[in-house]
Design a protein around this nucleic acid. Structure first.
Lengths: 222, 222
DNA sequence: TATTTTCTCCATCAATCGATGGAATACTTT
DNA sequence: AAAGTATTCCATCGATTGATGGAGAAAATA
């Protein structure tokens, strides 16, 4: 059960890691209820008992997938932070959107897993969800949207979450949106990136209308 | 099978309508795979055979739910168009976001159903999905984003779809996001509306940066 | 009222689901 | 080689799933 020194436990090569990888794919594609343990082990090419041997029951495997995907996303976010450090704000947004789109285009299951969790009933309450608000706060800080004392207001956090969800939506909705817009994969990714920049850069770079219509505190109209 | 004059077929009062309403709720809450026929008829308080008598198999019922929800959304969109007609652009966006948020807060299953379909594998290919690009084109026209000849470019359609998905994300992710942000329902809805206006109004009202970083055609940098 | 049609429920089906016990194999250690 | 451990597979379990046939009740039609 508990490996003594657990060296490279979830490697891509180890059986446990291979299962986790396949599980991420299947859960991302069909959702928690649509994904079956048999479909996962069929993907790996093993018997279902082997799956149960390495990971416990379905909920445990799902939790492991979520944690793994969140880890993966978190590592990439720090890379993005590193890449945009010191650059002017508009350029930072530009790079960040490009990097996020590229990453999620390569790992479409991640955005699907996250959005599925957002939309499903909050039953699989993983405490690790506390990390997402942390991500949002980090992003806000690296965009200069934090308060003087380093804290991040609820409004700012909400806006950052909205930004992330917009990116998730475009990347996880690729199949449906592509068939709607009649675009091949490459063209769609370009269009999605452009649309995201069109939506997000003006807002988060301060190009707000002089008297915004009921934004934040300024709720009076002219 | 085929009612002779089908008067008020899917009424809220008729059994067929009551089932459809419950099905929308259950499908929206648990997704296609997570929703069971028994859970739906349990919600209505009828036997499972009665459900199968009125609606055929599960896929047919699901299709009916999607079509019904899309109808409902379409009707509301025309109401929004009517409400914003003639107003200045910023005010139009303001009203439209308020109305859409209110509508989807009252019918959270609709945004969930739509987003779930966007994210799931495109198996339940309903031809009625052609209506969504139509919605997007209508919105673009009523926002003055159409070409001179009335057509709507792919880029514009993509941006409109992005706008709609942002709203869907906030409204269908209410449970998860609320627990992340520690807000009650009312406060969350207010924050979500503000965040959406913060993100969408500058972009779609033309408050773009003077030289946008690789937006649309202007792909050269200074 | 008699008859036909429409509707609802009970019982049940095969298929599939998550999950387990135990035999057989592969690998490590002695 | 022998003993012990770690891993994989086969067979199977009970529960739940989508789906159906047929009996009976309710309503409409004659």
């Amino acid at each position: 059960m508990a490996t003594p020194l657990q060296k490279a436990q979830n490697d891509r090569d180890s059986m446990k890691g291979r299962i986790l990888e396949a599980a991420r794919r299947v859960f991302g594609l069909y959702g928690f209820h649509g994904a079956t343990m048999r479909a996962i082990c069929r993907e790996v090419g093993i018997d279902i008992s082997t799956l149960y041997y390495h990971w416990g029951e379905k909920d445990d495997l799902y939790q492991a997938v979520i944690i793994d995907a969140t880890d993966c996303l978190g590592r990439w976010l720090t890379e993005v932070e590193l890449a945009i450090k010191g650059k002017p704000l508009v350029r930072r947004m530009d790079i960040a959107i490009d990097m996020m789109c590229g990453f999620l285009a390569d790992n479409p299951e991640i955005s699907r897993l996250i959005l599925q969790r957002y939309m499903s009933d909050t039953r699989h309450q993983i405490s690790f969800d506390r990390r997402v608000p942390g991500f949002a706060a980090d992003i806000a800080r690296s965009m200069g949207l934090a308060e003087a004392d380093g804290t991040v207001s609820t409004s700012t956090k909400t806006r950052i979450l909205g930004m992330m969800m917009s990116i998730y939506s475009f990347m996880s909705g690729e199949n449906m949106l592509r068939s709607m817009l009649n675009l091949d994969r490459e063209a769609y990714l370009a269009e999605a990136r452009d649309a995201l920049k069109y939506m997000l850069i003006p807002a988060f770079c301060g190009f707000q209308p002089p008297v915004a219509g009921t934004i934040g505190d300024q709720r009076h109209e002219h």
